[in-house]
Computed example of a mutant assay.
Amino acid sequence: MLKSKRKTPFDIFFKHTVYGLRYLYRIFDRTESRVILPSIERQKALPVVLSQQEVRLLLKTPKLLKHRLMMALLYGWGLRNYELCNLKLVHLDLERAQPHIQQGKGRKDRYVPVCDLLIRGVKTYLQAEKPVEYLFNGQADKEGGFTGISTRGVQWVMRQARQHSGIKKQITAHTLRHSYATHLLEMGTDIITLKDLLGHGHIETTLIYLHVARVSRALPFSPLEKLYPQ
């Protein structure tokens, strides 16, 4: 009602009103089952995507093989940050070139294809670093057991690579996943196959990449280009 009654409702005004009401109900111990508050829709911003040249630049920036491989897997397998952190040696299956990504978002398992270049990189890393249990080991737990690298550790690697590469775009680990999806579309992968590779539960989630990929359509242009041809 608040948004519908106002002629020009600002989302920020609506958001703070809902937050204030929720806080008020908690103070007076009134559960939301008695007074239902509307949900706040997230803004559907398009993802940041790197060009293929920017991906190549980013991947060669880190000095450590471990850090280069981490980013190569985020991009080459389209992994989420926590999926990379949870990746264990038993999941790799390098002989069949079909890594098993377990318990992704929505508890969905999936297999992803892998190229020979990544297989060689993983094997070189395994021989040099000799990780135990997890592909990328983090700090030991209180009982001395092995754990995977933390998501914060992965983001630190991404920040360092961005700073040293000179790329100005805002880059996170998920940017490489966005770039993976967009580049596959541009290379001819159909949207249904891409949905399965990304482990999406709903096709609507995958469709957003159609807005950023340059596939089978004329590139947008300004009408001024037609008024004043070069």
Score class of each variant (00 low, 15 high):
residue 1 M to W: 09
residue 4 S to M: 13
residue 5 K to T: 09
residue 6 R to K: 01
residue 14 F to D: 08
residue 20 G to N: 06
residue 21 L to C: 14
residue 21 L to E: 11
residue 22 R to A: 14
residue 28 F to T: 07
residue 31 T to D: 14
residue 33 S to Q: 15
residue 33 S to N: 15
residue 36 I to N: 02
residue 37 L to F: 09
residue 39 S to Y: 02
residue 42 R to K: 11
residue 43 Q to N: 06
residue 45 A to R: 05
residue 45 A to I: 06
residue 51 S to V: 02
residue 52 Q to A: 09
residue 53 Q to F: 03
residue 54 E to A: 01
residue 58 L to N: 12
residue 58 L to V: 12
residue 64 L to G: 03
residue 64 L to I: 04
residue 64 L to N: 01
residue 66 K to Y: 02
residue 66 K to F: 07
residue 66 K to H: 05
residue 67 H to I: 06
residue 68 R to M: 15
residue 69 L to E: 03
residue 71 M to F: 02
residue 71 M to S: 04
residue 75 Y to M: 11
residue 76 G to C: 05
residue 76 G to D: 05
residue 80 R to K: 12
residue 81 N to D: 07
residue 82 Y to M: 08
residue 83 E to G: 08
residue 84 L to I: 08
residue 86 N to A: 09
residue 87 L to C: 01
residue 87 L to V: 04
residue 91 H to I: 13
residue 93 D to H: 13
residue 95 E to T: 12
residue 96 R to M: 14
residue 98 Q to C: 05
residue 99 P to W: 06
residue 100 H to C: 10
residue 101 I to S: 12
residue 104 G to T: 02
residue 114 V to N: 03
residue 116 D to W: 11
residue 121 G to K: 00
residue 124 T to N: 11
residue 127 Q to H: 11
residue 129 E to S: 03
residue 129 E to G: 12
residue 131 P to N: 12
residue 134 Y to L: 13
residue 137 N to A: 09
residue 137 N to E: 15
residue 137 N to T: 12
residue 139 Q to W: 06
residue 139 Q to R: 12
residue 142 K to T: 09
residue 145 G to N: 15
residue 148 G to I: 00
residue 153 G to W: 02
residue 153 G to D: 01
residue 156 W to V: 05
residue 156 W to H: 15
residue 158 M to E: 00
residue 160 Q to E: 07
residue 160 Q to M: 02
residue 163 Q to Y: 00
residue 167 I to K: 01
residue 170 Q to H: 15
residue 171 I to R: 04
residue 173 A to K: 10
residue 173 A to N: 12
residue 175 T to N: 10
residue 177 R to G: 09
residue 178 H to L: 13
residue 184 L to W: 01
residue 185 L to R: 07
residue 188 G to Q: 15
residue 190 D to M: 05
residue 197 L to C: 07
residue 197 L to F: 03
residue 199 G to I: 11
residue 199 G to K: 00
residue 199 G to Q: 00
residue 202 H to G: 00
residue 211 H to Y: 08
residue 215 V to M: 10
residue 216 S to R: 07
residue 217 R to N: 05
residue 217 R to P: 01
residue 221 F to V: 13
residue 223 P to D: 01
residue 223 P to M: 06
residue 226 K to R: 07
residue 226 K to P: 00
residue 230 Q to R: 10
